[in-house]
Simulated assay, not measured.
Amino acid sequence: MQRRTKVAVLGVVLLLTVGLTGSAVAAGSAAASGVEDRPQREAAALTGTAKLYRSLGDDITFSFDAHLAAKDTADPMQATGTFEWSHYLNGDGAWAKAKVDCLVTGGKVAVVSGVVTDTNLPDAKGTRVGVTVHDLGHRDRLGYSWATTEDLGPKDLPKCVSSAPFEKVKQGTGDFTVVPWQPDF
């Protein structure tokens, strides 16, 4: 082997050795200090928008932007965000927006509750409502706490209470995403 080739090979080997040793030392230091390079994921989330299927052609839309921070993993009532919905048929209908006050998820199912902060429904402002979502890809399902009542239900509805996800999402509109909650109990 020529001398220049030997020097070049030796230089590459030396650089690789130093690089690998430095990486191992840095990784060992991070592990020893309990610090990781990757960010911690949020504890739970429900996001997305979809229209519900109704054979009469009702225009019903639900949208969610609800999150539980990693630091609050033990307390789902620290969830933040909003959700909103609207229901129109032949130009008549209503809409509402709620501030999230609880979010619990398990697998691909989420239950979120919140207090109505803005709406065109009479006497609905200040009412707590709950919604359940089952994230099934493009076949998502949804349920809501007022499913069996004439209006949005009782003003004293507990946090994170809703009904089973009995409604079907209109084909091609479901994009709900549920981040499963994994509490450290």
Rank of each mutant, 00 (worst) to 15 (best):
G34H: 04
T119Q: 05
T80E: 13
G106V: 15
S29R: 03
E167W: 12
E167G: 00
T105V: 11
H138C: 01
A74D: 15
V179P: 06
P183C: 08
V179A: 10
G11Y: 02
D175M: 12
L121D: 12
V112Q: 01
K159H: 13
T127N: 12
L46T: 08
E36G: 15
N90D: 14
D118L: 03
A124N: 09
F185K: 10
N90S: 12
P154T: 15
V131P: 11
T17V: 13
W146N: 14
I60E: 08
G57L: 10
T47Q: 03
K97L: 09
L89V: 10
G137T: 13
L56F: 03
T148C: 00
R139C: 00
L142A: 08
K108C: 05
Q78I: 14
L121K: 07
K159T: 13
S162Y: 04
A70P: 04
G19I: 13
F62V: 05
T105C: 09
S162H: 10
G48S: 07
L56N: 12
L142M: 06
G137C: 06
D58H: 11
Y144T: 12
L56H: 01
F62Y: 15
P183S: 11
K155L: 12
D72C: 02
T117G: 07
G153F: 01
V131D: 06
T80Q: 11
D101L: 08
R41Q: 12
A31H: 03
A32V: 08
F62T: 04
G137K: 08
E42Y: 00
T73N: 12
A43T: 10
S63V: 11
A66Q: 03
T5Y: 00
T148S: 04
A69L: 12
R141G: 02
S63G: 15
L10K: 03
A110R: 11
W146F: 10
F64L: 04
V12D: 09
V109C: 04
F83Q: 07
T132F: 06
D72Q: 07
D75E: 12
T105L: 13
P122W: 00
A96C: 04
T148D: 05
Q40M: 05
F62S: 05
Y53W: 14
D65M: 07
V115F: 00
V129R: 01
E84V: 00
A27S: 13
S33H: 13
V25Y: 01
V13H: 02
S63L: 06
E42W: 00
D92Q: 10
P158C: 09
D118Q: 11
G11E: 05
A26W: 01
K125L: 03
R54K: 04
Q171F: 01
Q182V: 09
P165E: 06
G28I: 01
R3S: 08
A79L: 10
A164E: 12
I60Y: 03
V116G: 06
V178I: 06
D59A: 14
R128M: 06
D37I: 05
D59P: 03
L10G: 15
S86H: 06
V179T: 15
T148V: 13
D92A: 15
S163G: 02
G143E: 07
F166K: 03
G19Q: 08
D175P: 00
T47Y: 00
F64S: 12
M1G: 14
S63E: 08
S29I: 02
D140V: 02
P180I: 09
T173C: 03
V13T: 14
S113M: 01
T119D: 08
D92C: 04
C102L: 05
D65R: 03
L142P: 02
D72M: 07
V9S: 07
G172D: 07
A110D: 08
